[in-house]
Design a protein around this nucleic acid. Sequence first.
DNA 1: CCGGATCCGCTGAGATACTG
DNA 2: CAGTATCTCAGCGGATCCGG
Lengths: 126, 126
Amino acid sequence: MREKTERIVREWSDSCDAEVSIAVLGGAWKPSILTLLGEHEVLRFGELGRLLQDPTSRVLTRQLRELEEDGLITRTVYRQVPPKVEYRLSELGVSATPLLGELTRWGTQYAEQQRSSLNRVPSPSE
Amino acid sequence: MREKTERIVREWSDSCDAEVSIAVLGGAWKPSILTLLGEHEVLRFGELGRLLQDPTSRVLTRQLRELEEDGLITRTVYRQVPPKVEYRLSELGVSATPLLGELTRWGTQYAEQQRSSLNRVPSPSE
DNA sequence: CCGGATCCGCTGAGATACTG
DNA sequence: CAGTATCTCAGCGGATCCGG
């Protein structure tokens, strides 16, 4: 578990475990990574990079390491030349897929509603 | 809508609306604020501060303003001395409560699992 | 191919002090 | 009571370059 995650897990023993979820799932590319791994079962580092439209490898590596530390994904290294590394969801990662679905659903609905209200004439009071 | 939220809503038109949800719900105290407002219907600034165990008023104000800008809560000001300001969930805020419930549920489960695995003897490989 | 090392700007959270 | 005004400080995301 990452130090950041651990800190949050310890401090918020009650009352706001939602912050735990956000600490683990929040972060650049993380929801996308988990969603893609849920769809493809297994992906290599380069495949993930392409599917995500090329984050810098530095950043992608960090996110993958954090997800691994937090126990959501597994990393399999094949010691060969050229190297080959596979990522897939762990059991814990699989357990998060329904939640990711809910996050996506609500986010989509929110975005649509906000977009449509942008097109309406602002009320006189604002 | 906050500029940050708007940026995310525009950029991720497809494929990762989960980031939208996290952008809106993530942030210090926000899940707690929304949960409390869901339970109490209406709360004043000071009441919120006490229930949250005293974040600095600077921080609490910022979070409330952001939630308001993103359309999740409403702010009612009574022009009187001493001042009185009430916060409650908007319709959009109410629509997020099931999601918050899911976040809390998964977070709780995750925290418990991680805590119990901390107590187990680490495997020889680590 | 899959990274590690280094540097860097920005935002978010908090401490502290003050106010209509 | 319900904030605002300043300041600080850490950490994240990203760019760039290097390496087994």
